[in-house]
Design a protein around this nucleic acid. Sequence first.
DNA 1: CGGTATCCGCTTCGATACTG
DNA 2: CAGTATCGAAGCGGATACCG
Lengths: 124, 124
Amino acid sequence: MSVSFEQMRAARPGVFSPQCATRLVLDHVMSRWGVLVLWALTGGTKRWGTLRRDVEGISEKMLAATLRQLTADGLVHRDARATVPPHVEYRLTERGQELMALMLPLMEWIANNADEIATPQPAP
Amino acid sequence: MSVSFEQMRAARPGVFSPQCATRLVLDHVMSRWGVLVLWALTGGTKRWGTLRRDVEGISEKMLAATLRQLTADGLVHRDARATVPPHVEYRLTERGQELMALMLPLMEWIANNADEIATPQPAP
DNA sequence: CGGTATCCGCTTCGATACTG
DNA sequence: CAGTATCGAAGCGGATACCG
């Protein structure tokens, strides 16, 4: 099963410690909206408005925060042209594409298995 | 790059809609603690106490909640023996192993690239 | 040992309104 | 068009105490 938890921990003690960078990146990349924004960008370069529509349910605030975070992480590139009206494009960096190449099969599996997993909401 | 966002959306309209099961599963599997617990279980069958130690920083409440969720999702199997003191084991189900087989390469990439990504905390 | 129950702060988030 | 500002509401998550 590739490199398991124990093997990873043996090779790199502390990868799991709460202060480790791995945790930070996990929180950004695997966050509620992070995945969805990254996923949307696998469709190629997109503008703010398109992302807002593609990532259904995201608020402007969260889209802004997520994009800022992912841009700071070097996973997304922001291209702003000083025109009126403004024209801003977002796309995956090379690093972002590396990441998504690994993430996409996972998303595909989830999309295919979601219905069988789908925990019915416990009645309140 | 495998199946992109647009291709997926074309093939299955609504996979992204907020009510879709895909979203639910994403929230469980890609949650802060979900990933880490699943990751820890790639090391094989483990007991509560071991998980508590392996997933550094998790509280008892969140470990319980996460395990209950993942068990309900059919990704983790709970094996309780009615002995004194109690002996409870957790392990990945077959479905869970399928998932983690796809997730591990991703985790490995993140662990390897975390330091370069690692956004320095913005000064307050 | 392996949990559940309760309380509660503190972040997160969404809605709305506003700006360059 | 592409955001920022502000403000409540919700819920995430930790600490503590207790149970089988």
